[in-house]
Simulated assay, not measured.
Amino acid sequence: MTTTTLLYLDDLSVGDRFESGAHALDADQIIDFAGDFDPQPFHLDPIAAKDTFFGGLAASGWHTAALRHA
């Protein structure tokens, strides 16, 4: 779905898809954000993150939601 209009919750349906631009995050960005806003081991420590569901360092969902793509 591509739109330039403001959407509200009632406008969304199960299965709707949205596409955004790409943005690469490096480990330093992930760790810095997590240290300030979401201090979970899988966001902060690559070694501890190896033993988690993610199998390695993972960006916070808050971080990915906060990204602004120009």
Score class of each variant (00 low, 15 high):
M1K: 14
T2K: 12
T2L: 14
T2V: 09
T3F: 14
T3Q: 05
T4H: 13
L7W: 13
Y8S: 11
Y8K: 12
Y8E: 14
Y8V: 08
L9E: 12
D11Y: 11
D11R: 08
L12G: 07
L12Y: 03
S13T: 15
G15H: 14
D16S: 09
F18L: 10
F18Q: 09
E19R: 13
S20V: 08
S20E: 00
G21Y: 07
G21R: 14
A22D: 15
A22H: 08
H23D: 05
L25E: 03
L25N: 07
L25V: 08
A27I: 03
Q29L: 03
Q29C: 03
I30F: 01
I31S: 04
I31L: 08
I31W: 02
I31G: 03
D32A: 11
F33H: 03
F33C: 01
A34P: 07
G35M: 00
G35L: 02
D36R: 13
F37L: 06
F37Y: 13
D38K: 12
D38L: 11
D38R: 02
P39W: 10
P41A: 15
P41G: 03
F42Y: 13
F42R: 00
F42I: 09
H43S: 07
H43Y: 05
H43T: 00
L44T: 05
L44S: 05
L44Q: 12
L44V: 06
D45G: 12
D45F: 14
P46G: 06
P46E: 06
P46T: 03
A48W: 01
A48T: 09
A49T: 03
A49D: 08
K50D: 13
K50A: 08
F53T: 11
F54H: 14
F54N: 03
G55E: 12
G56W: 01
L57M: 02
A58F: 02
A58G: 09
A59Y: 02
A59H: 02
S60C: 03
S60R: 04
S60T: 10
G61C: 13
W62M: 13
W62S: 06
W62T: 05
H63V: 00
H63S: 02
T64V: 15
T64K: 04
T64P: 01
A65D: 01
A66C: 01
A66T: 01
L67H: 06
R68Y: 00
R68W: 07
